[in-house]
Nucleic acid binder design. Structure first.
Lengths: 201, 201, 201, 201
DNA sequence: ATTTAACCGAGACGGTACGTCCCGTCTTTAC
DNA sequence: GTAAAGACGGGACGTACCGTCTCGGTTAAAT
């Protein structure tokens, strides 16, 4: 079938100006401010236009998430080292606000819009996935992998979500050491082995 | 100065009928439904009356929290056992909805109302406090206590808040065993020692 | 049952200011201008308030009609004279705009709102009724009464509605003389008998 | 200057399909439905195309009126007979809807669009003209001709426009007899002379 | 067969009004 | 003083249509 007529979707300029304003709004006033009304006021893009392309605030948030994917970090092959790297990366992202704010906004939206539930799911999965990837090389049974990831990541998320405080980076590193030692190494492990990393907290 | 006239505060009947409706609303439609409007519709208590006694939705939520305090569990003196008991208690409360819903509502409200931020803080502290209490008896350094509590509780909260799934009870018990062994016992610990507890998950 | 609380219906001030503005609008811009939006702009009464009390433009028009009822003219007992008086009265009312404008508005609204159809019916009946009342005394058979009223009134309405010109007063008086002579008198009638009336047209 | 390229104006197929839909819309939903939007929905002719050829709803209505002119009836030379024939013709046209609907639509549009005022004028003139033509042969003074036409036609229009009822055909015939007798014949007139016509009402 | 002007469909876009909903405050009345 | 009933201004919501516009692809006459 031959396509005729003007191409569909927002003109590039429109999409850019709206999403840029959306990011600003989100960071400065939180997810509840991502309304068509506020976006219109900030961008002077017509309210109707915004509804056309992003019918719900969830759609705006989804578009925001899509434009800033998390770049993959290269694996060294050493699981312990890789997991520590991921901890640092996640703490950095949580510290630089957008990720923590995205999470807060997703939780708040999920209370209203079922579509946001799924989005929240995918977003959290995206945050956790790198840890599973890093732990792939360690010879741990699946249960221990899951436990380790949960014990490492959850406190960071809780810090960002519930306690409004910077992610507890050094604690996370300690938990990594506790969980990710290969079982064979646990008795002989040198507890100071991970002290070379920069404790940025 | 002598007080004259009708005593202040809502008549008991009013307060009860409103808060009962508020709980129903909260559980069935989430924190965003806790509006004067909805409460009025459900209770046929006048909107003006509701505004008088609970000026903001946060006040309603705070009143709800106050009426259902968490009863303290008696301590046995055995930290390991007490922490396991607390894990079970928290999982039960998260499972029976109110607590998880309170948390979601508090997070959502905190995005809007600063007063809710403080309330959220206090509520989370109330959830965590029993674990610190239980670990009081264990001869662990403060850092390890904090790490342990975080590693135990955070995954449960994340399950309830972010992943909409029942709290991972057995995993939490495993994590307790991993963290709460008294340090002196870690080498000789029998990893099967906690298998007697009922795995209710 | 005891009535409690503030009495229902618009406060007097509100109703007056809105209806006054509605009349101005109607006369200056026609029935299509009787929208909540325009009324709000002119009165700075809130749009919501207007919707509360007059949910449709037809309701506004109905309220307008209710506040300005046509006062009854006294009957002399002489049908011919009374009908001539009614012709003058109707021409005056059509000339002074409100009635003609009401009619136009009612026709236009009736195209959209079924409620306006009934209102239009009642309004037209109200315009015609005085003629039937005046002709009551004449000893004419019912058919001739109807014919006479139609022949007298219709051209006036058509002038106002379709041709945007002042009602043809003198023609209407001629038609009265043609239709309302008592049949016994038609042969002997002095065609100049009605020349004493002031020809205001 | 030599014209080159595709000729201007709508392709025949486009014009026909749009006007056919416009007529349907007009009859079923009234003049207010004659919008570019509705025409587009019914015909799947692009909205832009419709704007190109009929910039306002009034233009659509004008085009509709142009495509269905009233065919002239032949005159017999007998004014009385001819006028009766015209009465029947007008009643038929009013009864078959389009004319009555056109009138209603024209009145409604005239409230908004000044261009429709002129159109309405022309349309009404077109309805009345045949009566003047038929009365041309009668030896009546101009004033009486005007009175007669008004008394005959106006009630029919009022029936269609204001009272939503079928045109009162037999009354119209009676009024013809009353007005159109040549003055010389009025004394000797046989009032039953017109009873031979079929009373279709 | 090419030009060339116009048609035509698809859709973006700003704008405006719609009718609804809830907010928070106020006034009126009854108890 | 408490409470109910309800008016009121305010503001956002989501929808609908308006009129204009920019794209592309198509069509039909004149060269």
């Amino acid at each position: 079938m031959v396509r005729v007529g003007r191409p569909s979707g927002p003109a590039e300029a429109t999409a850019e100006v709206v999403l840029r304003a959306a990011l600003t709004l989100l960071l400065e006033e939180g997810g509840a401010a991502l309304t068509p009304q506020r976006l219109h006021q900030l961008t002077s893009v017509s309210r109707a236009t915004i509804y056309r392309h992003w019918p719900t605030p969830t759609d705006v948030l989804a578009a925001l998430i899509d434009v800033a994917p998390d770049p993959e970090r290269p694996l060294t092959g050493d699981p312990v080292r890789d997991v520590h790297a991921e901890v640092d990366a996640l703490c950095d992202r949580l510290h630089e606000k957008p990720v923590a704010t995205f999470l807060q906004a997703l939780v708040a939206m999920a209370a209203t819009d079922p579509a946001a539930v799924e989005l929240r799911q995918r977003y959290v999965d995206g945050l956790i996935a790198p840890f599973y990837r890093a732990l792939n090389g360690a010879d741990l049974p699946p249960t221990e992998v899951k436990d380790a990831v949960a014990a490492i990541v959850s406190p960071l998320l809780v810090d960002a979500l519930l306690l409004d405080r910077p992610a507890a980076r050094v604690r996370a590193h300690r938990v990594v050491d506790l969980h990710v030692r290969p079982s064979s190494a646990r008795q002989e492990a040198d507890p100071a082995s991970s002290h070379g990393r920069p404790g940025r907290e």
